[in-house]
Amino acid sequence: MSDPILSVSGLKVSYGPITAVAGVDIEVGRGEFVGVIGSNGAGKSSAMRAISGVLAPAGGAIRFDGADVTRRKSHEMVALGLAMVPEGRMIFGDQTVRENLLLGGFSRVMRSDPEVEDDIERALELFPRLRERLGQMAGSLSGGEQQMLAIARGLISRPKLLVVDELSLGLAPKILDLLFPILADLNAKGLSILLVEQMASYALAVTQRTYVMENGRVLFSGPSAELAEDDRVLDAYLGRKH
C-alpha cells in the first residue's frame, strides 16, 4: 500500500512479564475503513492503546501520516491527527455534554480556533440526541448516548484517523444499528477509521478490510466481504453451527 495513514509493524505490548501483543502488522490506507476482530483477550485493545500512545510499546514501530510516532504520547498523537474513542467510552461524567465536546477539541480551544463551534454543530447534526442534552451532565446519559458523545468528542479534534475501540460494548442492537451506519457515513466522507470490535458480524459488514487477531498475533487478514464467507471466520466468530 502506498503512503498509508497508519502503518504498524512488529508491534509488541507487554504488561510486566505478560505479553499481550506479540508482533503485529496492521496498515490503514488513507480513506480506508479497517476492522480488527478477535475474541476477548486477543490483544486488540492493547494494540490500540499502543497505537494511540496510551501505553508505550515493548517493541516494533508505528508510523502515522508519514512520520515515526512509536514513542509518542497520546496527547501528541491527538495533535498529529489520531483520535481514539476508547473502550468503555471514558466520557467525563461530572462535566456537561457540551464541556465534553469542548474537551475533545482541547488544544484547538486553547488556541481559540473559531471553527471549533462549527465542528461541534456538525457533530450535533450527526447525533441530534446530544443536542437535546447539551447542558446535561454526561454521566446522566444512557450508554448509547455516551457512545455517541465519545464519537462526537473524538471528531472535534479533526482527526485524520479515528480509532474506535469496542464500539458495541454493552450496547443494545438497536443502538448499534444506528451507530455503525454513522461510522460508515463518516468513512464515506473521507475519514480513515480503524475499528476494533468483538461483534464480528457488525464489523465485517461496514469495514473494507479486516484483521483477525488471536493470542496477541494477527492470524490472517483480507477484504471483509471475503472474510465474511471464510470458514475460519464463520466458525470462530460468526457462530456457524455444523
Binding site: 494511540s52 500512545g53 496510551v54 504520547k73 497520546s74 496527547h75 491527538v78 495533535a79 483520535a83 481514539m84 476508547p86 471514558m90 466520557i91 467525563f92 461524567g93 461530572d94 462535566q95 464541556e99 469542548l102 474537551l103 475533545g104 477539541g105 482541547f106 488544544s107 468528542r153 479534534s157
Partner: peptide, 18 residues
C-alpha cells in the same frame, strides 16, 4: 475543565489532547 478531566480520568484526558 482540563484539570477536572485529568482528575477524573488521566487516560481519557490524554486522548483529548491534554
Amino acid at each position: 475543565r482540563a484539570i477536572r478531566a485529568v482528575a477524573a480520568n488521566r487516560v481519557a484526558a490524554g486522548l483529548m489532547g491534554i
